[in-house]
């Protein structure tokens, strides 16, 4: 039995940067977007001490634009890095739907969990779902920004569709992010959490839950060997 404190590197700092710049900008876009909706005054939220600013469209609009800049930067960075490094482990594969059903069944105690690569089948599906919605929001958002300038005034029905696709994708993404967070309520997934903060997860967990990925790592059998390029072994408190 290996030392449970032994960890394996799962995410490089570039992945952590991508995840958190997308996550934080998206959360700010949700908050400021709902301010644009116009919800906070309608539901009396502005009456809560410290939140009167939330009803100020000037503030929420500027916040939305600022967060959109961060999101556009993060998304192009992510796409470009993935292409240049040829990292496609998050893209869904054939059979992922069936496989994620097996994983869910196994988590509920029925049957054996299939062997997984770096990401579980449902993580790949979640990635695609979130990515598609973010892209829809990005494209419609950019059109909305253009329409707000002096020099571009598209027709009424175009504005109608762009606005309402932006709104619908907001709710679809909210649902996706909610599901993403609920996933960590399940104990089986929770061991992935340290990974998105520190970059490392428990070695033992990686071995049994992501066995296919673990096999590709250059993990030495004993800890006294030099760390390998990918998947170096670290001991907490080292």
């Amino acid at each position: 039995m290996a030392n449970p404190k032994k960890t394996v590197k799962r995410h490089c700092w570039s992945n952590l940067f991508t995840h958190w710049s997308v996550a934080i900008s998206t959360i700010v876009l949700f908050i400021s977007g709902f301010g644009q909706m116009p919800m906070y005054a309608r539901y009396g939220f502005t009456k809560i001490p410290g939140f009167s600013w939330s009803g100020n469209y000037k503030i929420t609009l500027n916040l939305h634009y600022a967060a959109a800049i961060v999101l556009i930067f993060a998304v192009t960075y992510h796409l470009a890095v993935s292409l240049m490094r040829k990292e496609f482990s998050l893209l869904p594969r054939r059979g992922d739907l069936r496989e994620s059903w097996q994983i869910i069944k196994a988590m509920l105690g029925f049957g054996k969990e299939p062997e997984s690569d770096k990401y579980l089948a449902e993580q790949r599906i979640a990635y695609l779902y979130i990515a598609v919605n973010v892209m829809i929001l990005l494209i419609t958002g950019i059109i909305k920004v253009l329409k707000n300038t002096d020099f571009y005034q598209p027709g009424a029905s175009f504005i109608f569709w762009v606005s309402n696709i932006h709104n619908a994708a907001t709710f679809a993404l909210l649902f996706g992010v909610f599901g993403h967070l609920v996933a960590f309520v399940f104990k089986d997934n929770r061991k992935l959490l340290p990974g998105i903060f520190t970059g490392h997860i428990c070695c033992e967990y990686a071995k049994h839950r992501h066995s296919k990925w673990y096999c590709t790592l250059d993990v030495p059998e004993t800890t006294d060997q030099l760390p390998a390029v990918q998947g170096e072994i670290l001991t907490v408190g080292d």
Binding site: Y65, A68, F73, Y77, H78, N148, T149
Partner: peptide, 26 residues
């Protein structure tokens, strides 16, 4: 819409900066 319009111009540079940063990292 005046101050967001200023930001809209900065938005043009965000994808360029993203690709540039990615190039450096890759």
């Amino acid at each position: 819409l005046d101050s967001p319009e200023g930001m809209a111009k900065q938005m043009l540079f965000a994808p360029i900066a993203g690709i540039f940063a990615a190039g450096m990292v890759a």
